[in-house]
Design a protein around this nucleic acid. Structure first.
Lengths: 243, 243
DNA sequence: TAGACTAGTGAACACCGTTCAGTTCAACCG
DNA sequence: CGGTTGAACTGAACGGTGTTCACTAGTCTA
């Protein structure tokens, strides 16, 4: 069953024939159970790891039968997708506030560092959001979250200002800086989470060194004009019109 | 059953009471079947993706019962570990030959690029080797492969020579360069494989830009003296004694 | 109060990794 | 040659997975 059909099923009885309050209470009940399912799923996957979460265990924890879950979520993947959205919200909500240290470059560094820090404090969320390949919807749809776009915009703006202040060579694409730094840190984060560090290697040090090297390289003029994606074009054009 | 017990089981009948040739033939047969199992597993996992490989499907493909597999491999994880080793051998065998272009920096760049190229030509191998979190042995044991160490040593040497030639600031740790560049490219490779690129983004361009930025940053002196891991110490000391 | 509708269940289906008693059969020994 | 051994292999099972569906119990509407 696809999501459209499922949503139709959820609100099949939408003619307002009930006295006021009944439908609302039913809706509240539904939402409470749905939330309980997500809470149980989150508990399991945060503490026991992201595999090891089964429909039956979730159902057991909320004392429902496994089949009941399926009238709240069309599939296990959708539960994980909802958790991923939760993760993105978590990342965005804790990462939007820059430290306002005065030094633009330091601010940028610490905002990117936040991405890596998130991978440490919420490894299971991070794995689900950025590494998992079993829930196709995540890789397809995560760019659609508006709070992710907002976070990205904040970083873009700050990078733009850094370019204007001369921290990066003029003509540098803010989006390219954004993607390159994120990619570098993403490497460090995934190496750590997937347990591919060398023996005795300090993950934080490697992450820091890789981020510093990438920033330094960009300041030195690497990738100044590279057009990494189509949307760079439009965003860059918009930026140019704005300023 | 652990591996030691399993190996003992494999060669339990090792008293030479048979006429010459019989034991050899039996051993050859065993190896042929083991190879057939790995071939079937590889076929399935290269073409149908790394999940979607089940013992029952492997058994079906070689027309054995699922239980038969377990007298050749102690568990499914061990089959995947054998495939991962195959992958590391593949990566090392195709990556040891540097292009000898004359420019040391270009040689280094292209040897690292080979890592990223491997992630494109053998995505399932790459995912199993560097991303998978379900087969603990891989993350634990892959550093032990001697051909991996050899490949690493080659890169270390080349980086060392680049430092001596002035391409990187003197005092730069070859191991730090190695890890930082690998981390940066690893980010690009995993973003691509896990399908977390932006819409319309060119993965190769991002990888190239990230690698270039990191190289440029290291040339500019970022991370010159950072000690990323314990073995850096010993290796760096050995290097110093060598030269 | 009769009918409609909903949430929830139990049982089933088709998979999965793994184990084990039992069969088959080639190789060995007397 | 006949009997014995032992390895290879199988079928069936165990406990697990995601998912579906006929059905029940119970609440709300008319």
């Amino acid at each position: 069953m696809n999501t459209v059909q499922f949503n139709r099923l959820k609100s099949r009885k939408s003619q307002e024939t009930q006295p006021l309050g009944v439908k609302e209470r039913q809706e509240r009940d539904r939402e409470a159970v749905a939330r309980a399912i997500l809470d149980a799923a989150r508990d399991l996957f945060v503490s026991h790891g992201y595999h090891n979460v089964s429909i039956r265990k979730i159902a057991g924890r909320i004392e429902y039968s496994p089949a009941a879950i399926y009238s709240y979520f069309p599939s296990k993947d959708d539960i994980f997708f909802a958790l991923a959205e939760e993760g993105f919200r978590l990342l965005a909500s804790s990462g939007t506030e820059p430290p306002a240290s005065g030094d633009l470059l330091d601010e940028i560094r610490s905002m990117f560092w936040h991405y890596y820090a998130f991978s440490k404090t919420h490894p299971e969320y991070f794995a689900l959001m950025f590494i998992d390949r079993t829930v196709p919807r995540i890789s397809r749809d995560w760019h659609g979250f508006e709070f992710v776009a907002a976070m990205k915009q904040q970083l873009h703006d700050r990078i733009q200002r850094a370019i204007e202040s001369g921290a990066f060579p003029s003509g540098t694409s803010p989006h390219a800086v954004f993607r390159i730094l994120l990619t570098a840190l993403h490497g460090a984060a995934t190496l750590r989470i997937c347990d591919r560090m060398e023996r005795g290697e300090d993950a934080d040090l490697l992450a820091r060194a890789t981020l510093d090297a990438a920033i330094q390289g960009l300041r030195a003029g690497s990738g100044v004009n590279c057009q990494l994606s189509e949307c760079v074009d439009s965003e860059a054009r918009a930026d140019r019109h704005d300023s």
